[in-house]
Simulated scan of single mutants.
Amino acid sequence: MGKSINVYDLPRLQQQLAEVAPSECREVAEEMSVQIPKEDLDAQSSLNPEQERDFKIILRAVGCGRAGLFFVDGRGGTGKTFLYRALLANVRSRCMIALATASSGVAASILPRERIAHSMFEIPLQTNESSMTNMSKQSGAAKLIRKAKLLIWDEVSMPKRQTIETVDRRFRDIMDIDKPCGGKDIVFGGDFCQVLPVVPKSTKAETVNASLVKSYLWPLMEKIQFTRNMRARTDPTFSDFLLRVGNGEEPTIRDNLIPLPEQLTVKYGSDGNAEQSLINEIFPSLQQNASAAKYVTARAILASRNEHVNKINEKLITMFPGESKRFISFDSAEDDTNNY
């Protein structure tokens, strides 16, 4: 696992990384100069027993140069991101490169210097059983992959397995090693109870066949499972309910619908307006708190369809005090040859 880290040496450590960077290509230099948040270094001493066990297993593989593929399986709130941050901080603090990527933009904004997988690995939008990424072996991105000691790819339950296999083939080519992912240490993470690959007009079997679990890489991954919900640890009833739903153990009624517990529901108002009742529950006293940033950012209403999102947004906008303004943006720019 390497030597222990003194968090108070962080400024000196970052100066050492900055001194190494100039001799490398731009991509490598940028990664070597990444600032390591102190709270991420502190995270290594705050891992729960599940996280600490797997933290040591992964770092042992990185330290001995043993190529390893890992899959961290855990429901939302079980601490996958906390583990990622601790791993990235540990590897980067030892003057080594660790790359973080995710399959969605929202997930890619959580970790320091995390990027969307399609951008980082130059994955084509359409992939098949023989496709390759657009990354050339001589590019700076390829040099970065060669130097990386650890890669983390979050939300891999979302892309089709062909997308991940496309990266596998390119990594073998870049590294000139015919081993899974070119012999790199990669931590995949996700939750198959959340968003699965989108296969238009598909059956359940076709969706499953497009997911990572049907890839030739799946049997080669060491499975890590998190079961302790850290986010809802003060509410074990809700945490247990989420686990039962995810495991398919919660009783269902007609059409396989799951009845929600009474404490999770919002009652209809006297006027029978469902949207307004929900808004009043989530945004109480909106008129008085509309200008308070903490009030607005601490709550949100999620919906399954865009039409429902638009309907709720329109209602909320009319409730904000003051005059509404519309700001126009452009998708593209054209040369003004007529000087308009």
Rank of each mutant, 00 (worst) to 15 (best):
D40H: 09
H308P: 10
R146D: 06
A333L: 15
R326E: 10
I317K: 09
N256A: 09
Y340R: 15
L41G: 00
G246Q: 03
S157E: 07
V213T: 12
K80C: 02
N48F: 06
Q44S: 14
T163Y: 00
G77I: 06
G183H: 02
I253A: 05
F55G: 00
V20M: 13
S202T: 14
V106Q: 02
I279Y: 02
A98E: 00
V91F: 00
E19G: 08
E31T: 04
R254V: 11
L217P: 02
A292L: 11
Q194A: 10
T337N: 12
L144Q: 00
T133L: 08
R169H: 06
S329T: 15
A290F: 11
R12G: 11
E281V: 12
T252R: 12
Q138F: 13
A29I: 07
G76H: 04
E165D: 15
C64M: 08
G182L: 04
P259Y: 07
M96Q: 13
G189L: 01
P112Q: 07
Q15C: 10
L83N: 01
K214R: 15
E249S: 04
L87E: 01
R113D: 15
P180T: 01
V156S: 01
N247L: 12
I186Y: 03
I36M: 05
N229W: 03
R170N: 09
S285C: 14
K149Y: 14
S329P: 12
S332Q: 10
H308E: 13
R85W: 03
